[in-house]
Design a protein around this nucleic acid. Sequence first.
DNA 1: CTTGCCTCCGCAAACGATTGCGGGCGATGC
DNA 2: GCATCGCCCGCAATCGTTTGCGGAGGCAAG
Lengths: 350, 350
Amino acid sequence: MLGAMQETLPPTLQGAVTLRDVARAAKVSVSTASRALAGGLTSRATEQRLQRIAAEMGYRPNTLARGLKTRSSRLVGLVVHNLTNASFRVLAEVVQQRLRAAGYQAILCITADDAEQEAATIATLSDQRVDGLIICPTGQNGAQLAALEQAGVPVTCVVRRDEGTRLETVLAADPEGAYAGTQHLLGLGHRRIGLVVGRQETTSGRERLSGYRRALEEAGIGFDASLVHEGRYAPETGLAGCRQLLDRDDRPTALFVANHESALGVLRGLAERDILVPEHLSLLCYEDMPGFAWQRPAISVVDSGAEAMAELAADRLLQRLRGEGGSRAAREYRIGARLIERQSCRRLED
Amino acid sequence: MLGAMQETLPPTLQGAVTLRDVARAAKVSVSTASRALAGGLTSRATEQRLQRIAAEMGYRPNTLARGLKTRSSRLVGLVVHNLTNASFRVLAEVVQQRLRAAGYQAILCITADDAEQEAATIATLSDQRVDGLIICPTGQNGAQLAALEQAGVPVTCVVRRDEGTRLETVLAADPEGAYAGTQHLLGLGHRRIGLVVGRQETTSGRERLSGYRRALEEAGIGFDASLVHEGRYAPETGLAGCRQLLDRDDRPTALFVANHESALGVLRGLAERDILVPEHLSLLCYEDMPGFAWQRPAISVVDSGAEAMAELAADRLLQRLRGEGGSRAAREYRIGARLIERQSCRRLED
DNA sequence: CTTGCCTCCGCAAACGATTGCGGGCGATGC
DNA sequence: GCATCGCCCGCAATCGTTTGCGGAGGCAAG
């Protein structure tokens, strides 16, 4: 039974090969074809035959149609503030990779930490019928996110929390990390430790400050607000902070910089004044970045665990996408920070 | 039991509000609702009424269904090797932003410069029925890309070219950039200029080398292969290259580093030997990165125009997505490089 | 009042897949 | 040899939109 008659249309032209074409060529119904390609729903004979024919004809399922029917687009939104910050960059890379390995695609959206853009983004992603969402929220659109979650679309927040909501969240252990970093400097004998930190409206800014403060107080050293410079996470801020802290009469013997971008500015500020690290001043940075390990001297850091955060966020979301862990109350996860000693901190001689 | 008893279910629960719900509420047909919301296809009265009702009910069109019908997913694939390289990072940021402004979403895919991953990625994106593709190709999957283009999905290559194909391509003007950079160093009186460059299997590696070579030859200085270190674009390579070039008896007076990642390694190598920039040696880098401007001394660079490339690539693709510029032969665009003088290059005294 | 044109809306057929239900048929048991 | 059971497969509905086509109605012209 050789069906010499087939191949009516050139499948290479505009229209792609559809399941119907395959079914026709194999002389079975569309439903059988569908089941055969799904596997395990027909006899082994037809299954193999159809898979062969489908492959020969170059059939590729139409994800749109499938998604319409199965109510699942295999798309996941990935919303970050930018890609310059190392945490976000790593997040994007890792999440994308993990999702793809699990058969999902990531739609990348950048909000520039702007609530309006975020709102628009969420709406669009929702229209796009994403199956899930990994987002570093601004904190202004909690209602929208909660609505999504309510509608059955799992949402996982990462790096930042959305205060008003009870969404699953993966965070860095900022209080502990900042605490450990400060303790490290204290352990080296430093007593006047300057802090360049982010805005106190953000969780990370507050938490990093509080960890620093707690370490000082536990060591019996009073917290001195004048040793703290608050600003955005940017080189300019770092430079300003560095200048301010170094202009004091009792210049700090160590600097703790709570973000890698401001660290660039701090390094510049130190170079300006010909201050050598670590000879004249010890420098510790929160968050690692590629340059730090190669720099001379290599900068010691408290690694906030961006990679682990990304992995956990992806895995948590995937688990929920698979329908597991359904009713489990939304949890908050913390990724432990890790001190990486390099060459920028030095024991204070007295 | 075959009645149409599925009356008004609570729309707030799982199922979203559909066009049908809106139509029912407005007591018009689905087609009228569709036309009214599209705008300009009904009387102004019904148009406004339906828009109001739709908004009240919180209607959001289902992009999957629409895409199935209109054969357009409003999705564009964005395929890069990684996000660490500044060019790719900028590309991702800019393209994402431009596409979104035009109503498209970007699906981010990272290939790690691996042909197999790239092949799988292209297939998946094709299944996903992306409307277009912006890709930094490995060069191994030209046939697949050409097939996509053939099937009516515009493909724009960026940063790298896919040799075998005739796809639209946006590239940096690497030969000219490298030429200009080398000329700059020559103009400062340098005669022994070391080059740390990428693998010669890649276009950019070849082109940057050839620009360097041409400048030397035009200046009447012979090309000396022993002054060239070839390797991957990574800090380790830079370090190795730096060591090799500095171990010569007639140490070069200037180094031209053809990639910002290897530059990290070079800086480390220089620091190891206590070589001061620019006092002992001039350093020029191809491709800018955030740290360079803040570094002390700030590193002079040949900016390869990543942002302009990204913008052009996005705009070209968008134009083709709009159906303009259809039959125009696939063109190749070059983005001019620009020398940014900072403090790492110095006139050679004799 | 009739005719004709134009505007606006509804019917129904797609788009390409998945899936409940029931029928056909071969194998099995007695 | 007949009834029963199960395995495969086909029919048709469905997911939520868009869109060609034709019908209904309004208004102006004759």
